[in-house]
């Protein structure tokens, strides 16, 4: 295996130099979104697929505010509650964006937005067979992540906490187990509230972090985008550097020899 010298994130053979994937929802204006994307250094952003509003054509197009020379689009299937529905949205997304990548979401519960894993696995299998690069959003459940990988997911994206909750990584031990067994990239998707949450995820050794609300709904989204960029980089560096083991008692940093008597 060639050494990955620049420490790129590689998903389905495509190289990304940023390990931060961000959303395009909830921004107050598209200009703020554009600036936040720039500050985040992201190379992959999620978008949703919806009906064109034929009665109100005054809205500025989302795509005109995404630097597509630098940023790849990742259509999602947000809002879908069955495999059938998610597959339909994925196909529409592929047609609209001319890319076969999809962030697959099949929601199972309105209040928690937790995924319906049975439907998710089914949809992943079908879409992989149709040639999609499937990045499924899932629970922090090692068994489900393994099954998703078995049916051909290009990455697994366990949640850190519920979507938009900003609670941070609720179950680092599950993420550790998922990492231990995964042969595809592991991206923590959802739940990141502030920079330290992103750093903690990266320090666990995950390959990337995906977030939307944490940046878009911050008081200053552009500043938070930069904070997240740095946090992801910091966490990654610390993971690669290898932290010291935790100990209960002190270990002096200064020599005991040469003390005055």
């Amino acid at each position: 295996m060639l050494e990955n010298q620049n420490d790129a994130l590689i998903i389905a053979g495509k190289e990304f130099h940023s390990r931060l994937i961000v959303g395009t929802g909830k921004y107050e204006t598209l200009e703020v979104m554009r600036q936040a994307h720039q500050a985040s250094g992201t190379e992959l952003v999620t978008v949703a697929v919806r009906r064109v509003d034929l009665s109100d054509r005054s809205q500025q197009s989302l795509l005109s505010c995404i630097d597509r020379d630098r940023i790849m689009l990742l259509p999602n299937t947000a809002g879908c509650y069955t495999a059938e529905e998610a597959i339909r949205y994925a196909r529409l997304g592929r047609e609209a964006g001319l890319s076969n990548w999809v962030k697959l979401e099949v929601i199972g519960d309105e209040k928690t937005l937790f995924p319906d894993n049975q439907e998710l696995i089914l949809a992943t299998r079908t879409l992989v067979q149709e040639g999609f690069v499937v990045l499924p959003y899932t629970n922090d459940d090692p068994v489900v992540c393994k099954k998703l990988e078995e049916v051909g997911a290009a990455a697994v994206m366990p949640l850190g906490a519920p979507i938009g909750s900003g609670l941070g990584i609720q179950n680092p031990n599950n993420i550790r187990i998922i990492l231990e067994q995964a042969k595809v990239p592991v991206i923590v998707d959802a739940g990141v509230g502030t920079a330290s949450d992103a750093a903690i995820a990266m320090e666990l050794g995950v390959d990337g972090v995906l977030m939307n609300t944490g940046i878009a709904s911050a008081q200053d989204p552009v500043r938070m985008a930069r904070a997240m960029k740095l946090a992801v980089e910091c966490g990654r560096l610390a993971y690669r550097a290898g932290r010291i083991p935790k100990k209960l008692y002190a270990a002096a940093s200064s020599p005991l020899e040469g003390m005055l008597v």
């Binding site: 395009t24 978008v47 949703a48 697929v49 009906r51 064109v52 999602n76 529409l92 609209a96």
Partner: peptide
């Protein structure tokens, strides 16, 4: 007829 809108 669909298009892309903001999403996460």
């Amino acid at each position: 007829i669909v298009h892309f809108v903001g999403g996460g």
